[in-house]
Design a protein around this nucleic acid. Sequence first.
DNA 1: GGAATAACCTGGATGC
DNA 2: TGCATCCAGGTTATTC
Length: 310
Amino acid sequence: MPELPEVEVVRAGLEPAVVGARIAGVSVFDERALTRHTGGAASFEELLTGATIGVAARRGKFLWLPLVDDPRVHGRAIVGHLGMSGQLLLRPAGAPRERHERVRLEITHPVHGELAVVFADQRTFGSLAVDHLVATPDTAAGGWGTDAPFVPSQVAHIARDPLDAAFSDARFSRAVRAKRSAVKRVLLDQTVISGVGNIYADEALWAARIHPETPAFGVPARAVTRLLAEIRAVLLKALAEGGTSFDAQYVNVNGQAGYFAHSLNAYGREGQPCPRCGRPIVRAAFMNRSSHYCPRCQQVPPPRAIAAPS
DNA sequence: GGAATAACCTGGATGC
DNA sequence: TGCATCCAGGTTATTC
C-alpha cells in the first residue's frame, strides 16, 4: 500500500517529466477519482487545460503539483492521494488506456516532448483535485520537492512527515505522550506524524521493541525517541529499495515494483520466526486491519508501570 | 474535545 | 464450475 516511501518514489519519478510541462489535455474517465475536487469533471478539465506545472511536492502521503504562468489557476495546485491502490504512471502520448485508468493528463514537456500522466486506481480510494495553496503556519517549506512555504488546503491539517527538515521531534514526543490511545493508533494519526501507514508502523514498532497496543502515554520519553529513530530508519531503507510491493497495487511511474517486501521483519510474517528471537510473529486484529508483532520482543508494560496523563 | 468505529471500494483468495 | 464470503487498509464522517 502506498505509504511515504512509495509516494516519494512516485514524486521523484514524476518530477523530471512534469516540472515545466504544459497540460495540453485532460480526460476524466471516472468521476469517483475526483471526490476531493469541488466542481466535478468539467471544472477539473477546464482549470487544468493550458496550465503549466511548477514543481512536484509531497508531504506524507499527499502529492501536489503547483500550477504556474496562468492567472486562471494562480495559487492553485493539482493535489493527489493514492489511497490504497492508486498509481501515477508516465506513458507515451496516445498510449492505450490502462486497466482501472480514472484520469489522464496529456502534457507537453520542453525537453521530453509529449507524454501522458495516467492516474489508475483499482479500489478508488485515491483521488485528484485542484486545490488552493495556503501558507504554512511555521513559514517553512510545504514539504519535499518545494522551497515554497505553501501547501494545498486539503493538506494543511496533516502533520509534517519525519523525513521533513522542519519536523519537530519534541512536538511529536509531547503529542505521543499526551494520548491515551494505543501507540500504533497514534502512529497512524496523520495529524501527529504523516506518511506512516500500517506496514511501516508495524516495522518501526518491532524495531523499537514496543507492543502496538501499549498506551501511548505509557511509552517512556527515551523509547519515543528510539521509536522515531526507527521510523526514520525504516522509511529511508524502504525508500532506498523502491518501496514495498506485495502485488501489482504499488508500482513506480514506470510500472516497476519495489523490493522492500523482502526486508520486512514483522508485517505480513504471521507464524514465521521473529528475526531477533525466533518466536513466531503474531497477527492480531487492530482498527479493522491487522497488527504484526513479536510476542516476546514486544510486550505491553504492566499497568502499574504506566502513569496516565493528567 | 478526544477517542473509537463504520463506511467507502475492488479483486484475489478461500471455502462450500 | 460457480457462488458467497472474507480480507487488504487510508481517510473521513459519525457516534460515543
